[in-house]
Design a binder for these strands. Sequence first.
DNA 1: TGTAAATATACGAAAATAATATAAATATAC
DNA 2: GTATATTTATATTATTTTCGTATATTTACA
Lengths: 192, 192
Amino acid sequence: MARESKKHKDIITTARELFWKHGFKRMSVEEICRKANVSKMTYYKYFPNKIELAKTMFNNVVEEGEKQFRMIMKEDSTAAEKLEKIILLKMEGTNSISPEFLQDFYTGSEPELKAFVEERTKKTWDLLINDFKEAQEAGIFRKDFKPEFMVIIQNMLIGIIEDENITAMFDTRQELIMEFVNLIIYGIAPRE
Amino acid sequence: MARESKKHKDIITTARELFWKHGFKRMSVEEICRKANVSKMTYYKYFPNKIELAKTMFNNVVEEGEKQFRMIMKEDSTAAEKLEKIILLKMEGTNSISPEFLQDFYTGSEPELKAFVEERTKKTWDLLINDFKEAQEAGIFRKDFKPEFMVIIQNMLIGIIEDENITAMFDTRQELIMEFVNLIIYGIAPRE
DNA sequence: TGTAAATATACGAAAATAATATAAATATAC
DNA sequence: GTATATTTATATTATTTTCGTATATTTACA
């Protein structure tokens, strides 16, 4: 009963792909098994039910995101560089959570999974904010900036990316990110 | 009972989005109605069942693709320009058929829809090949080139786009397309 | 107000799904 | 080659979901 079994891993990565793309409800255990080349019986050897698979999968993704985030924060780099890397990380999709996956929860069904996701997300935010505070104390960010404000910045970014009027103003995504980072880091006041 | 009803259109465009993204089986009529802001009853006023909706939707997409294709073929332009535009059209997704949508059929389920899609696709190919022949007779393409070969070229293109080793060789998608078009139009023999 | 269209709701039958049980097949270790 | 442990194929049951219809209500609108 090796917990690091190949099949076990296959199930999780397949689940991530499919839940991410189509959402939780739309995917059946059987289809996940088929795509992962695992029989249903081996599936139920590792996971007691469908929800538990989603939890494990989500947990893995969040943990991976946390790890990458902390790596960036520990790097010896400026605030602008850090922020840019964090945004890129988010946009690469490794860290960002698929709306398809979240959709099911916010329609009211699957309250157990919804609670789990919310709690886990909150826990992550606490961690990230703490890292921000440390970086702040180390002098990387302005002292009177509230790290909790990062949540709001995240939402701003999402809004900007989804706004076609804004994206149309830039030739490349990179340019848009740099502009955004500069705004967040330096504000709109002229530099001296 | 206006056949050009707004609701009727809403259903089709929503179905296209969702079938395209998640496939036929995974989408329920109810969810399509919900996303299209149409009650189930009005849905069944316009469509007798789920398959008929998929057929209508597919038909619309193919017809739209045909129209755009013929427009390009009728234009006063060189073979290279035409081919490039056709490829771009395909890549924009307006014309290309989502693999998610096709997947259900090739697993054996839904034989009726499978038959319909195959027949409709064949009919389209016949039309397109005919247009190619006309263009050929008009001197736009080499006389001893078999238009039926276009099917094979299509498959080549799909293979190339999905091959990361190849796409990595080009900075932009445009470059890759141009290279491919040049190969198809002029071959690899040196130009005099 | 009166008429046509759209909706919400409920409903039954059929199909799909989650989860379990059992026997056969495969792989691995000795 | 045999024994042991995994994995699979298949069948099964209870529970949901889904399809498609019927009815009663609400909305649009002329």
